[in-house]
């Protein structure tokens, strides 16, 4: 492995910006589908950071972590979409704020 042409800081910066975009999305979006998309952006930001970190050390570990993250994201989305179907059926809405029986 040769050294990467793009400096580590730049990639980490892009990853951090992506992470923040996702985070803000989770905070402001009320539609469940968009919430899940925002989460996905955050996960992929982490993946990007891992790949960059792995490239810095010339190790495959970063890319392996990215594959783990992909698998986990898929599992999470599978459960989440099942919940979304139930949500639509029982609340007749995908707005997360209509699901607010619990409070205290």
């Amino acid at each position: 492995m040769t050294a990467v042409a793009v400096p580590l800081e730049h990639v980490l910066f892009v990853a951090a910006v992506l992470f923040l975009i996702g985070f803000v999305g989770v905070l402001v979006r009320r539609n469940v589908i968009f919430l899940l998309m925002s989460l996905e952006i955050m996960m992929n930001a982490c993946g990007l950071a891992f790949v960059a970190a792995g490239a810095r050390w010339g190790q495959p570990d970063g890319q392996i972590m990215f594959m783990l993250i992909l698998a986990l994201a898929a599992a999470e989305v599978a459960v989440a979409l099942a919940l979304v179907l139930q949500l639509e059926r029982r609340f007749a809405s995908l707005d997360i704020d209509t699901a607010s029986e619990l409070n205290g």
């Binding site: 980490l12 989770v26 989460l39 930001a45 970190a53």
Partner: peptide, 21 residues
Amino acid sequence: YLVLSGVASTTMLFGMALVYA
């Protein structure tokens, strides 16, 4: 739980990536 815990998990992942870097 899914949304909030997802945010927490990704936060942890990002932290791990930084430590690894």
